[in-house]
């Protein structure tokens, strides 16, 4: 499955590259503008500049975006327009193979964005700790969760108009996952932030990038892993229901 996408996307590299620029432009605007207006922020008791604060969150966001792009719109086309999966299920491949393959691909795309983002962060001098390398597995977890959630959501969609729900879900997540300001700022709505899968990714990647360790990171990992496993299982079931009646 993954091999198929590699071959298919050889012709569509521009689409892939373009997705990487969105969070990058966000970051540049933060550095040039907002970063000068806003003072330092503390992460795990350590003060960091605002750009250093936002960058890891945008890295998590780019992993989310890459995974979501591929697991929603593209899956929709493969499922409803190209009937790609019908052809694949006529071979020894099972619905679980299809789900794992396509979620894996979407995860890879998210990972590609996250990794390029990490390179840019390093080049801009925003990374100070070797633990920043661990942001890669962390962003993979973010990608996996969103790839699987996107895939599952898409399987419930009846047509393109339903696609707008993806934006309805991801836009507030980008705004309210402690992305642009610390979780303390949410006051008594702080609990709600915990409902966003992106928040757990942001919190984890931020700590790793700053080289700060805390027990709460284990909780974030657990949330992401549990969500991912559940979503993959549901996704495989949905393919089975939809295509093997």
């Amino acid at each position: 499955m993954v091999e198929r996408h590699l071959v298919a996307y050889r012709r569509m590299w521009l689409i892939i590259v373009s997705g990487f620029f969105e969070p990058l432009f966000y970051l540049l605007s933060m550095r040039l503008g907002v970063g000068r207006l806003v003072g330092d922020v503390t992460v795990g008791g350590r003060p960091v500049t605002y750009v250093e604060f936002v960058a890891p969150a945008l890295m998590a966001t780019s992993a989310m975006n890459g995974a979501i792009y591929d697991s929603t719109g593209n899956v929709m086309v493969r499922l409803r327009q190209m009937h790609l999966y019908d052809g694949v299920l006529a071979t020894p491949m099972t619905p679980a193979d299809v789900a794992v393959g396509d979620i894996g691909w979407a995860l890879l795309r998210g990972q590609l964005y996250a990794a390029s983002f990490l390179v840019v962060m390093t080049a801009m001098g925003l990374v100070h700790s070797w633990s920043a390398l661990l942001t890669l597995p962390a962003s993979a977890a973010v990608g996996l969760v969103f790839a699987a959630l996107g895939f599952t959501a898409t399987s419930y969609m009846r047509g393109w108009p339903d696609m707008d729900w993806v934006t309805v879900a991801t836009m507030p997540m980008l705004m309210f996952s402690a992305t642009f300001f610390p979780v303390e700022a949410y006051g008594r709505w702080r609990w709600a932030v915990n409902l966003s899968p992106l928040y757990h990714g942001v919190a984890m990647i931020r700590s790793l990038a700053a080289g700060v360790w805390a027990w709460s990171m284990l909780i974030h990992v657990a949330v992401l892993v549990v969500l991912a496993v559940v979503a993959v299982v549901v996704a495989a079931r949905r393919i089975d229901r939809l295509l093997r009646a």
Partner: peptide
């Protein structure tokens, strides 16, 4: 098995 479905399920991106 080999299967030729009623509606083509060819891969249009390849």
């Amino acid at each position: 098995l080999g299967v030729v479905p009623q509606l083509d399920t060819l891969d249009q991106e390849l």
